[in-house]
Every structure is written in C-alpha cells, then in structure tokens.
Design a binder for these strands. Structure first.
Lengths: 128, 128
DNA sequence: CACATTGTACTAATTCAATTAATACAATTT
DNA sequence: AAATTGTATTAATTGAATTAGTACAATGTG
C-alpha cells in the first residue's frame, strides 16, 4: 500500500486521494480494478473509515473511480493513464468563479455567462 | 459611500474591496482620484481602521490602487474601467469549458461541478 | 518645529470552517 | 442470517481567518 505523513499539513484524505490517483496515473491500477476497501485502508493507516471514504468520494466526484455499497470501489473505465480530467477542470472553474466573486459579479450573471459558454461549446448536445 | 452587510459571511474587508472595485469599474472613481481614508471608512462603517486597510492592501496588491503613508490612497492609472477584469473572467471560464469538451467530460457533469463551485463561493448570499 | 493626519505593523481575542472520529445505517455478497 | 461493503449523521477538535487594540512611521499643515 502507500504511507501517510501525519505531520503534514495536507489532510489525510487528501494524501489518500493523491496516492490512489498516482497509482492510477502510472497504470499500477487499471480501469475495472478493485480498490482496497475503505476499512482496509483505514485499518492499515490507523484512521477512521470515513477518512478513507472521503478520499474515495472525491475520487468518484472527479471521475476516477466509482463505489458501490456492499461491493466495493473500482477504477473507472474512463480513468486511463494520466488524464487530467475533471480534477484539473474544477480547479480552473474554481479560480474563475473566485475571481468573479472578488470582482463583485452577481451570481445569476455569472451563471448565465457560464451557460452561454456551455451551450456554445457543447453545440449539438442535449440537456437543459 | 457604500454600505456593509454585517450578517454576511463575506468578510468586511472583502466587501469593502468589492465595493471600491465596483466604483472603479463603473467609472465613479477615476485614475488619480483620492479614495476615502482608511479611518474615514472605518468610522463610517464602525469597524477597525485595520479592516479598511486590509481591503486597500488587497486592492493595491491587485494593482487597482496605491497607498502612501501620510498622503492617502489613490486609484491607479492602470485601473481604467473593469472590463479588462471581466474579460479575463470570461476567458478563464471559456478556457475551462473548452478543456472539459476536449477531455470528453459530459455536459451535465460539468454543469454540476460548476454549480457546486458556485454555491461554495457564493455562500455569503448577499452582502457585496 | 510641533502636531495632526495618513497608512501600517504587531499582537491578541474570537469566530468559523475544515478535519477527523464515533456510531449507526444501508446495500450487496456469501 | 451474517459478514462485508460504502455512507450518513453527529460531535470534538484543531487551525486558519477575521477583527480589533494599540503603537509606530511617514507625510502634510500651521
């Protein structure tokens, strides 16, 4: 498995996230592979299962893995190699929205602007 | 002057920042104009001078104003209108969405991700 | 030169969100 | 049914962010 630095200011769930993502990136974990259970990670690292679960939920949110209660967690089919994917995109979005907030742009205006961009670039797709 | 929402979760110095920046953006404050002193803002809003000073320091950091001890604070020459900043924000948004399209991220997923970001950063509600 | 006015540095008190854990629950497998 | 899986809920704790109290530094004014 991997190891954790408890002295680090980086949260444990964040370290788990990074370690798993790295394993996926280098191909040590392939799409469809079963990941260690949250309880296994928790017991090996000596932390609470929820801490491992949180890392997995973030990995799922970013499209790298998927989890099923009772079954386990698995590497997503789309998570091949070192694709940047949603995690990096989110960072960009976050940065842009943060700028807008600082500038005092109203939420609805930003939302409208985003939707216009979305519809422009996703031309041909459906969705509201 | 402007007003502040003390109920908002948005920090006071942040609200001052946004208000001043908006005044610059709409041309109510022109390059070279003298800004209200930190003590004037502080007394009118009923906060500590350091709180107003912090807003000014952030505005200076971002190149919108400059401050001189003993003299006061002034709108920077380069801070004409806010369209530049607005354009940058749109550019960032466009770039992020474009990345998402290139990486094959589905529209709905991106939309959800954006909304999460939006709600996270606009959690203050009103108070800008 | 004295003195007011300006922004700022330093420190401490407080508040608030993030992190983690304790516990219980829900879905799936065996 | 029992075991194994991920997750929801709640609470304790910690740590960073926010704000204020106070003192200092630089400039303007008489």
């Amino acid at each position: 498995m991997f190891s954790i630095n408890f002295q680090s200011r980086k949260p444990i769930y964040d370290q788990i996230y990074s370690n798993v993502l790295k394993q996926i990136a280098i191909g040590e974990l392939q799409p469809g592979d079963k990941l260690p259970t949250v309880r296994l990670i928790a017991s090996e690292l000596g932390v609470n299962p929820n801490t491992a679960s949180k890392a997995y939920q973030m990995l799922e949110r970013d499209g790298y893995i998927y989890s099923v209660v009772g079954k386990g967690s698995f590497v997503a089919d789309s998570a091949n190699g070192g694709e940047i994917k949603l995690g990096e995109i989110r960072k960009k979005l976050f940065s842009a929205v943060k700028d807008a907030v600082e500038y005092g742009i109203e939420k609805e205006i930003l939302q409208k602007s985003f939707n216009e961009t979305l519809n422009t670039l996703y031309k041909g797709g459906m969705g509201e």
